[in-house]
């Protein structure tokens, strides 16, 4: 990642869209990684079988925070199955980088993993 890119991201990081608990949500899940010292909660609201809105809350680094923030936008309109099929490749596109180093993979995927866990909860399978 180039300096300019980091500078652009840090700006978003300090005021990330979709941060804060949704007042009305159907499912939420906490995700954390002690090595990253990241901790996020995601909130998801459905409209029928499609995600209507989602948000996140918590503390993390630039990569984890921005991937969480932008993932929340990307989830809108998706079914749970469609969200489950998302991968790190989708996250890279959301952040706008070609490569994520192995030591930052966890940062990039913590929000997505948490969303997937949220959507795997028993009551979701009904």
């Amino acid at each position: 990642m180039e300096d300019e890119k980091f500078y652009e991201l840090i700006d978003v990081y300090r005021n990330p869209p979709n941060k804060g608990k949704l007042e009305d949500f159907d499912v939420s899940e906490e995700g954390y990684s002690s090595t990253c010292s990241d901790r996020f909660t995601v909130y998801i609201k459905f409209d029928g079988n499609k995600i209507k809105k989602s948000s996140f809350d918590g503390v993390g680094c630039v990569i984890s925070t921005i991937s969480a923030s932008r993932l929340c936008d990307a989830l809108v309109g998706k079914t749970a199955e469609e969200a489950q099929s998302m991968t790190i490749e989708d996250i890279k596109k959301l952040i706008g980088v070609d490569q994520i180093s192995i030591s930052r993979t966890k940062c990039a995927t913590i929000a997505l993993e948490t969303v997937k866990n949220a959507l795997s909860k028993d009551h979701m399978k009904a």
Partner: peptide, 24 residues
Amino acid sequence: GLHSHDTAYLLDKKGIAVRSGFHC
């Protein structure tokens, strides 16, 4: 205003290896 991971990342770009996170 920076997460420790991002500080460590920026130092690494200058060749400086430091740890970040909770340090177990």
